[in-house]
């Protein structure tokens, strides 16, 4: 339950945002961060964005997830 994941905001709609994590799109709350905008990277935990992340760092983290997914041979987000 502790697994947080980095995601990219596709679009925002009030208190919610549609985000992309490894190609999977889901809706999360952005009420706990300030100024969420499309293109921002965020760390998501329990359906809520808990912090914004610098783009470069978030992409590096996503690459690690992709590598883990490849090694595991199955989607991590399933």
């Amino acid at each position: 339950m502790c697994l947080g994941f980095p995601a990219k905001i596709i679009k925002t709609d009030g208190s919610e945002a549609l985000v992309d994590f490894l190609g999977v799109r889901t809706t999360v709350s952005v009420e706990l961060i300030e100024g969420a905008c499309p293109g921002d990277y965020i760390m998501v935990h329990a359906g809520v964005a808990i912090t914004k992340m610098p783009e470069q760092e978030a992409e590096a983290t996503l690459l690690v997830f992709e590598e883990l997914e490849r090694l595991a041979g199955e989607p991590l987000n399933g």
Partner: peptide, 13 residues
Amino acid sequence: AVGFETTAPATAL
């Protein structure tokens, strides 16, 4: 509602 400080704000929300 279980979890540490990471989850408690989501419950509070």
